[in-house]
Amino acid sequence: MGINVDTPPASSRRQAHWEKSSSIRSRPRRVLRGWSPDEHFYPIARQPIALHALVTAKGHDARQRVLLQSLYKFLNDIAFVETRVVNEVALAIANDRLPWPFPADLRADVLTVLIDEGYHAYVAIDFMEQVRRLTGVDPLTLPPTLAIEQAIANALVKLPAELHPALRTIAVCIAENSVTKELIDVHREEGLNETFHAVNSDHMVDEVRHCLIFADVLRHLWSVLTTDQRRAIGVILPDFLGDYLNLSLQKQFDMKILATIGLSAAEIETVIAATHLEQDLATYRNVNPIVDKVVTFLRNCGVLDDQVIRATFAEKQLI
């Protein structure tokens, strides 16, 4: 069968798509030119403590402070995850510095991710500073780490050193195929600041493309690992997911926010108990579709083809 010269390879199509649609190539700087006191900078639907009766009883300004500090953490998390987690792995792949070689076209795709993610971090910090200057409100002390960093650290101690690069790479593949859902879920709700919505939409466009690239990264990496290597990694992935989706850092920061709006220790405990339910991953799966989304992603990339790995996921009630 001859090659259809009219159909460019996937790598060429991806490059053309990146040149046309990547936010760093096609979007202007998002400038915050004004702000109404009636606007909020972070979706209420994504911050449940803002809806609790003890918070709403404190009035409009208190809720605004909750949402503003939530924005700061959201943007800071973006900057951290892009530069400290995703780009560390992307740089290793692009420079062919992993123990397992990647095809040249896939390394080129990952290089576009590296460029995008650095820009996303810049946009996040730039927008945070614009908001700080406009509102006159400084961020609280932000968490020095991320849930995914903690999850990776917890997983690495369970693996031999030679598999650490593979675990880090798979962690990024998972993160890039879950962050898209997180961004899509930041809906354009009434009263949400337009510039925030534009910043978030730009990011979402790029992440949709990234999730496809990192799906190919995972498929390739999984194909070159031995059966024993796959199993060593696969059987710890349920625990990794539990750590990655753990909300303890968010809970700690929410407690700090609530203290700034004048809630007592007892009131803070009440709000947190109502909005941060203690639950295992199987239970969390029933309330957040991101769990099934990640498991489906792993299945589609061949991770669950192995019966030992599949049995581990079944034991954890993830399939």
Rank of each mutant, 00 (worst) to 15 (best):
residue 126 D to Y: 11
residue 235 V to P: 00
residue 144 P to N: 14
residue 205 V to P: 00
residue 103 P to D: 09
residue 168 R to L: 02
residue 23 S to R: 11
residue 169 T to P: 00
residue 24 I to T: 03
residue 263 L to C: 06
residue 51 L to D: 14
residue 153 A to R: 13
residue 299 R to S: 13
residue 221 L to K: 01
residue 178 S to A: 14
residue 302 G to A: 07
residue 37 P to I: 09
residue 31 V to I: 15
residue 316 K to I: 02
residue 243 D to S: 12
residue 58 K to D: 06
residue 240 F to G: 01
residue 211 C to Y: 03
residue 95 N to F: 05
residue 1 M to E: 12
residue 155 A to Q: 01
residue 49 I to R: 03
residue 72 Y to C: 06
residue 99 P to A: 11
residue 140 L to N: 07
residue 134 L to T: 07
residue 36 S to M: 07
residue 106 L to S: 07
residue 303 V to E: 01
residue 287 V to N: 14
residue 119 Y to M: 12
residue 56 T to H: 09
residue 179 V to L: 12
residue 253 F to H: 11
residue 197 H to S: 14
residue 158 K to P: 01
residue 144 P to Q: 14
residue 205 V to E: 10
residue 308 V to Q: 07
residue 28 P to R: 14
residue 236 I to E: 08
residue 16 A to M: 12
residue 190 E to T: 13
residue 143 P to V: 09
residue 130 Q to E: 13
residue 231 R to H: 05
residue 275 T to G: 08
residue 151 A to P: 00
residue 16 A to C: 06
residue 172 V to T: 02
residue 69 Q to K: 09
residue 86 V to K: 00
residue 225 L to C: 03
residue 113 V to L: 10
residue 193 N to F: 01
residue 270 T to K: 14
residue 300 N to I: 04
residue 11 S to A: 14
residue 44 I to C: 07
residue 12 S to W: 11
residue 315 E to P: 00
residue 238 P to M: 10
residue 105 D to F: 05
residue 209 R to M: 13
residue 243 D to G: 06
residue 172 V to G: 00
residue 34 G to M: 08
residue 146 L to R: 10
residue 229 Q to A: 12
residue 13 R to W: 04
residue 178 S to H: 05
residue 75 L to V: 07
residue 311 A to M: 12
residue 97 R to W: 04
residue 22 S to I: 01
residue 214 F to V: 05
residue 260 T to Q: 13
residue 318 L to I: 05
residue 35 W to C: 09
residue 153 A to E: 15
residue 40 H to C: 11
residue 314 A to K: 10
residue 34 G to K: 15
residue 289 P to Y: 05
residue 243 D to M: 06
residue 235 V to L: 10
residue 201 S to H: 13
residue 118 G to M: 07
residue 77 D to G: 08
residue 70 S to A: 15
residue 167 L to V: 02
residue 312 T to V: 09
residue 257 I to D: 03
residue 149 E to C: 09
residue 44 I to F: 05
residue 275 T to D: 10
residue 130 Q to P: 02
residue 102 F to M: 09
residue 311 A to S: 13
residue 231 R to L: 05
residue 9 P to L: 12
residue 193 N to L: 09
residue 96 D to P: 04
residue 107 R to A: 09
residue 265 A to C: 05
residue 38 D to V: 08
residue 149 E to Y: 03
residue 213 I to E: 05
residue 251 K to W: 06
residue 11 S to Q: 08
residue 161 A to D: 10
residue 80 F to M: 13
residue 150 Q to N: 13
residue 25 R to S: 08
residue 137 V to T: 13
residue 26 S to I: 08
residue 225 L to R: 00
residue 178 S to C: 10
residue 31 V to F: 09
residue 162 E to R: 11
residue 312 T to W: 00
residue 120 H to S: 06
residue 242 G to C: 08
residue 87 N to Y: 02
residue 51 L to R: 15
residue 71 L to G: 02
residue 17 H to S: 13
residue 24 I to L: 15
residue 164 H to V: 02
residue 7 T to N: 14
residue 228 D to R: 07
residue 316 K to F: 03
residue 114 L to K: 04
residue 201 S to P: 01
residue 138 D to Y: 06
residue 253 F to N: 04
residue 14 R to N: 08
residue 53 A to F: 10
residue 237 L to Y: 03
residue 124 A to Q: 03
residue 167 L to T: 00
residue 47 Q to R: 15
